[in-house]
């Protein structure tokens, strides 16, 4: 008898990861101290710019297609966010000091 391995649709696998990550996010974010909610926003903003990987794929191929141009613009926008977001978060976090 032939053994047939059935794999789940990749979408279902990704959906599983997505749903589990929402749960992880839920618990991690509730443990963030309210005093750091502003840095939380700026750092989530910086990490959501990991969307740059999509922009890199669009900008990667040779030639000068519209898709590539859009990709390059998206890289620029995401880069503003990545560098700006992490740097401003660092700037804020370095200000939080304990009583001497």
């Amino acid at each position: 008898m032939e053994i047939v391995l059935l794999a789940a649709n990749p979408f279902i696998e990704q959906l599983s990861i997505f749903v589990l990550a929402i749960f992880v996010g839920y618990y991690v974010v509730w443990s963030v101290t309210p005093a750091l909610h502003t840095p939380l926003m700026s750092v989530t903003n910086a990490i959501s710019s990991v969307i740059i990987v999509g922009a890199l794929i669009a900008a990667g191929p040779e030639g000068a297609t519209l898709s590539k141009i859009l990709g390059i613009i998206a890289i620029g926008l995401a880069a503003v966010n990545i560098f700006g977001g992490f740097a401003v978060t660092h700037r804020m976090l370095s200000m939080y000091k304990k009583k001497k």
């Binding site: 990861i17 974010v29 969307i51």
Partner: peptide, 12 residues
Amino acid sequence: ALIVTGALVGSS
């Protein structure tokens, strides 16, 4: 990576 990050930021 994007799916996980999106979920984290979205729930945050």
